[in-house]
Design a protein around this nucleic acid. Structure first.
Lengths: 345, 345
DNA sequence: TGTTTAGATTTTACCTATTGACTATTTCCG
DNA sequence: CGGAAATAGTCAATAGGTAAAATCTAAACA
């Protein structure tokens, strides 16, 4: 059993100085405060020797920062319905890791079940000064809550998806409209004219953005999206599978299928396979929302737009700390997606 | 800007009692301490009214628990090489979520870069009383470190993979040997006699356990594993792809391929596809380490052993808290994997 | 030599909640 | 009616740090 360090007073009496002197040696930057080089050295040496570790709670009690950032993610119940997002989450966290390590910040995972918002637990975390800032990812948030959070003055950033009206809020998001547009143009350039869409949940702004991007690209070629070839989904394999079988059973010709997730793209491919159709020769498959670094589907689908998760995580870590330090007061970043034309296999 | 609560003194003077009385009302269990029902009510009401939130750091300064559990995971550099594990991580965390929520515990993510162990930062966390316990997942740990951690007396549990010699350590692990054995027996029952193995990193105990399970199953039928049909890998798509092409180019007949990860199974399937071989009719494909809940591969591969991530997460959350509370002093759980015979499509 | 003054450190107050020891009041019982 | 016991609550010490103000020392100056 390792003994649990000593207090600043123990250290001080060991070196025969006042506790405050120790505190100043250990905390003030070099030239801010005047201390003889000799005293400084004696204290630092003794700190080493006695294995002194300042009690972090005492520090925080004095109103210091906690150096902890909260990351609010959907609770399992919601997560389960968005399994395709899991890899995004780990990637985003990976993107944050480096900078947080450098700045000695830690990440506290918070699960956004309904109670979190109802009971205003985020406010509690804030008031208890448990975290210095809040990053919000993948949760569905009503505007009222966003507004309330905003008005607390507490540093926060919405990541990837935002409440609908987010003009004055802090966010880092992705240009889904542009990505969908790019993907569609790419398919059009390859000669595809019969394009089906298996979209995500229609109430999400992401879904609307994507659809808009597709329609704009089609409109540029004087084409429109055939309403019979639009399917709703819950991002799951089976949704892609079922929609594709329905498509193939119908009378409309299909040359390309755009899906809202990789998981669905796999379902589409499985269904095409059942019909002995080859990808991408017979039917092209595209995913609007791929996880970077996962390359299974590169070998199968021609076009994917990858979410720049690492960059988003990196930006999030840097920006939240700048918010906390008061160096900026608004974060509104938009990242482009990464296009991959997938013909690597 | 919401005002940041009031102190116990503010509340006390508002109700005209001593701060200690407030503390007693708010903390002591009912019959432990004697306070008139009337005073109690006045204090509780005022606490509501003034929105009193006790300063958590002051509490902790007094030696209370932090109600924070550290979860040590590989840092990105290592993670990138084990991308297939990402979904495991999220699932494990999901499994922890519910119980931690119930017990009001939070999860602090810690990244195990080399410095973490070298600088003994875990010890610092412990001594600074920042976390009450430590869960360790997916990191490569030498025995010396494990032993040192163990001797601090600090509550910890190794999850899924453990140091080689872990007799006296705390762990929750998976019976990979049995799972590999089951999978092999299943393939044998289906008549497969020419089984190839694309295994993981040979220095991991997991890999050895899996191989042992396979060999035992084969031995029961008086068969052996053909050394020419064993391949090493880094769990990636390309490893599965390359190994399969090599297999098919060789002279040995192959009727089933066992891989160490789903990602590789996908690579195997892609390679088989190139050779116009169908799964599972022409060649069966099995994965020794699947992510539960991801069902893309169910439609493609006949047999998978799924890691019971949710259960492991759940057990981890329950056991670490029991360790912390001193209700138990050793955790050595072994979970069976879940066999899925995959013929669902 | 007496007075400033800069430099180095200490003193003291404070941050907020907890808890063991203590006081004051009331009740009970012989 | 006096003393013991129960009741209701307060006081003061404590936890481990920080920082403003105070003090002490020695060099610098007139």
């Amino acid at each position: 059993m390792i003994k649990s360090g000593c207090s600043i007073r123990d250290l001080a009496s060991y070196v025969q100085v006042a506790p405050s002197t120790v505190s100043r040696v250990l905390n003030s930057r070099r030239n801010n405060v005047r201390i003889t080089e000799e005293t400084r050295k004696r204290i630092l040496d003794a700190a080493q020797e006695l294995n002194y570790t300042p009690n972090i709670h005492a520090k925080r009690l004095f109103g210091k920062k906690t150096n902890i950032i909260g990351l609010l993610v959907p609770s399992y119940e919601k997560m389960r319905r968005h399994i395709f997002e899991d890899n995004h989450l780990v990637r985003i966290i990976s993107g944050m890791e480096q900078y947080f390590q450098e700045c000695k910040y830690n990440l506290l995972l918070l699960f956004n079940d309904d109670d979190f918002i109802k009971e205003k637990r985020y406010l509690k975390l804030f008031m208890e000064k448990q975290i210095d800032g809040l990053l919000i990812w993948g949760t569905r948030h009503d505007e009222a809550w966003a507004r309330e959070l905003h008005e607390t003055g507490f540093p926060y950033i919405f990541l990837t998806n935002t409440p609908d009206d987010c003009e004055s809020l802090n966010y880092i998001k992705i240009d889904y409209r542009q990505a969908a547009n790019d993907i569609t143009r790419l398919l059009l350039n390859k000669g595809h004219r019969h394009i089906a869409l298996i979209r995500g949940k229609p109430y999400l702004s992401i879904t609307r953005d994507q659809e808009q991007g597709i329609r704009e690209a089609l409109a540029a070629e004087s084409l429109t999206l055939d309403e019979n070839m639009i399917f709703d989904s819950k991002y799951q394999f089976d949704d892609g599978y079922a929609a594709t079988r329905q498509l193939l059973a119908g009378k409309h010709p299909v040359s390309a299928i755009i899906t809202a997730s990789d998981t669905m793209a796999a379902g589409v491919i499985a269904a095409l396979d059942k019909h002995n159709l080859r990808v991408p020769d017979d039917v092209a498959v595209a995913s609007l929302d791929s996880v970077e670094g996962l390359n299974e589907f590169n070998h199968l689908s021609p076009v994917t737009a990858k979410v720049p998760d690492l960059e988003i995580g990196g930006a999030a870590s840097r920006q939240i700390i700048r918010l906390i330090d008061g160096k900026i007061e608004r974060v509104q970043d938009v990242f482009p997606m990464k296009m991959v034309s997938g013909e690597t296999a």
